[in-house]
Design a binder for these strands. Sequence first.
DNA 1: TGTACATCAGTGAACGCGCGTTCACTGATGTAC
DNA 2: TGTACATCAGTGAACGCGCGTTCACTGATGTAC
Lengths: 192, 192
Amino acid sequence: MPRRSVTDTAKTHQRILKHASHEFRSRGSAVGIADLMKDLGLTKGGFYRHFDSKDDLFVDAITLSFQETGERLEQIAEKAPDGQARTAIINAYLSQDHLDHPETWCTLPSLAPEIGRMPMAVRKRLDSTMLLYAERLSKYMKGETPQERRQNFMLLFSGMAGALALVRSFGEPELKQRALDLAREHYLKIFA
Amino acid sequence: MPRRSVTDTAKTHQRILKHASHEFRSRGSAVGIADLMKDLGLTKGGFYRHFDSKDDLFVDAITLSFQETGERLEQIAEKAPDGQARTAIINAYLSQDHLDHPETWCTLPSLAPEIGRMPMAVRKRLDSTMLLYAERLSKYMKGETPQERRQNFMLLFSGMAGALALVRSFGEPELKQRALDLAREHYLKIFA
DNA sequence: TGTACATCAGTGAACGCGCGTTCACTGATGTAC
DNA sequence: TGTACATCAGTGAACGCGCGTTCACTGATGTAC
């Protein structure tokens, strides 16, 4: 197949990125390049016209994930009634929808431990991505100073991510339900 | 090589289990059977005299992990001065040692998301393991009733696990240090 | 207590399979004049 | 505006490698008499 126009090339690049960011979140970082490309109707050879390596794709896909989730939570906060932004964020983060759809939500409960095992080069590049996510949502946190709000963001989000990861690890549906409800009530009480 | 005595066979079984439980925690569930056996001076073919499949090994190794960590935290709680058991547990869980040595500590911050992606059969078998871990440590939690203490265990441990997983994902050492200290102070304040 | 035989822990080669990456090739797109 | 040529997105085969699992074989251990 022949060369493509610059706009088509850019579109393909974005399609790979978006699909990878969904697949990594729902299936983990071990998702294969051949599978990703096949899902898009492409062959694996063409991948390297868009990314230097799988690690490169991973960094870009995770960055996109944090951007998507940041934007989504920002919108939820903005649409909430006055003074209810933080409550809305917590309810959304600990919702049934987030539990059931890792692919369109936060990367942390899906991939945090795997990111921790990535090469240092990858993790350094993701630091700024995560700090940007924190910056974007800190404004909705409790606290007098920006620093205090940033700290509360770290505590709230790492806590909710841990809760969601634990709930997802349970097999029994009833157990999952009870644990998710418990976590939601707790974080609303402590942070909202 | 010939057949081994029943005691030697049992020892080898335990050696595989213990090593696997360390390796899964430090490198993730993708650790290979050939590597595990080689580390113990054995060849991969012999693995199937001890376990039916890798999934079987995984379940047993994770079960051992929770038992080890449960026992370890229990001892820390028992050795603590009167009324300091919970404080001692939180300080140990959010210690530099836990941050740096996933292989000998809690499975949750290392593997919770990966467990969530395992076949249902595996997850169902791990439910009881995790509930036993909860049962064992709930007695040190705040709360009037056993149920309340169990709930506080879930919230505290999923929160601390999430914090540890996030801290481990950071590349920058300074950032890690600050985030770990922040989490420790927070959980001591909220739960101790 | 001694002998004959069945059991099975561990080896090492092989199974089919999937991985990330490379590469010669194609032909439409983009560019230079 | 039209022509000649360079570029490069995508294909499909191949690279070396590692995966989980199976299997014939070995010989000391365990067992039955």
